[in-house]
């Protein structure tokens, strides 16, 4: 029997729940020669700010057991280039759910970028990053306090008349459920969790941090159980849909995330070691569903 992999996020149908996470798949275009983008349920585009940003000095990447650190620092061409060039170019070759990921350093910047994304015809969903831990004085402050997270949510909801808003949460908090509830109460249409965990490595020969930025976000297979726990807690505490993210590497992880309450599942760091992992997961899902006697993925969301 044909398995139904489709899911629905706030009324938007995704052919499957597999979505490359923001920052680990560029603007999709970078990979269009290497794989068939149209097998992907959605693509979360690289985090975008009002102005173009170069980001942090190199080294920006450090290898870790079961994962990696990144301190890219939101390198991006700015919101104007996103809506005028990147999204239209991607739309020409991709028919799935295009998710714009918006970052900001002030409420004004969030408002400005979200308003532009809201009127861009190629964008299906807006994901607001309030959790990027890399940038000095950056998004961290918003994502780590319930009041500030609610403030950003309300601000962007006010300017977005067409598109649904997902708030992407930071895991570097004491109680993620409190922040998730604050975003839901402020009008968020959905939540993506989690972003990376703030981490650090030291080069013991040089006696200095490996990353030029000293600290960076840890992601990869090692964070999967923690991310899953947070998805479980938030999905059971909130009514709005959740995109689960953190350490997903295979179809099995996707099923686990969905059982914990995720409607869609993002794949992040694993893309960097295996650029073909997302299509591989999509291909792997039906046989795993068969083994588990699952006809439709929608049936397992939040069943644990």
């Amino acid at each position: 029997m044909v398995k139904d992999l489709s899911v629905e996020l706030c009324g938007i149908r995704l052919k499957n729940p597999v979505v490359p996470a923001s920052g680990t798949f560029g603007f999709g275009l970078e990979l269009s020669d290497s794989l068939d983008l149209n097998v992907l349920g959605g693509i979360s585009l690289k985090g975008t700010t009002r102005e173009a940003r170069y980001g942090n000095p190199t080294p920006r990447i450090a290898d870790c057991p079961a994962g990696m650190l990144n301190a890219v620092g939101l390198q991006n061409p700015g919101i104007d280039v996103l809506v005028q060039e990147k999204v239209p170019a991607l739309r020409k070759i991709y028919d799935g759910c295009v998710i714009a990921n918006i970052s900001g350093f002030s409420l004004d910047e969030y408002r400005h970028c979200c308003a532009l994304a809201d009127t861009c015809p190629g964008i299906d969903l807006i994901e607001v990053n309030i959790s990027c831990p890399n940038v000095h004085g950056g998004g961290m402050a918003f994502g780590t306090s319930a009041a500030a997270a609610a403030e950003v949510t309300a601000a962007v909801k006010e300017v977005c008349r067409n598109k649904r808003i997902f708030i992407k949460l930071s895991p570097n908090v004491t109680d993620i459920v409190e922040i998730a509830r604050a975003c839901e109460d402020a009008g968020a249409d959905g939540l993506t969790l989690v972003n990376t965990f703030l981490g650090m490595r030291i080069d013991i020969a040089r006696r200095s941090p490996v990353l030029a930025n000293k600290m960076g976000g840890y992601s990869g297979a090692g964070i999967f159980p923690i991310a899953l726990r947070m998805v479980y807690q938030v999905a059971h505490a909130c009514r709005i849909p959740v995109m689960g993210c953190g350490g997903v590497t295979c179809a099995r992880d996707v099923i686990e995330m969905m059982m914990a309450g995720a409607t869609a599942v993002q794949v992040g760091a694993e893309n960097l070691r295996n650029p073909f992992v997302c299509p591989e997961i999509v291909e792997e899902l039906p046989s795993l569903m068969e083994q588990l006697h699952i006809e439709s993925l929608r049936d397992i969301i939040g069943t644990v």
């Binding site: 680990t24 980001g55 190199t58 920006r60 990447i61 990144n70 890219v72």
Partner: peptide, 14 residues
């Protein structure tokens, strides 16, 4: 340079 993906989509080696 220290690289992430090596294929131009993670922007780790800019």
């Amino acid at each position: 340079e220290r690289m992430g993906c090596g294929a131009g989509f993670c922007y780790g080696c800019s």
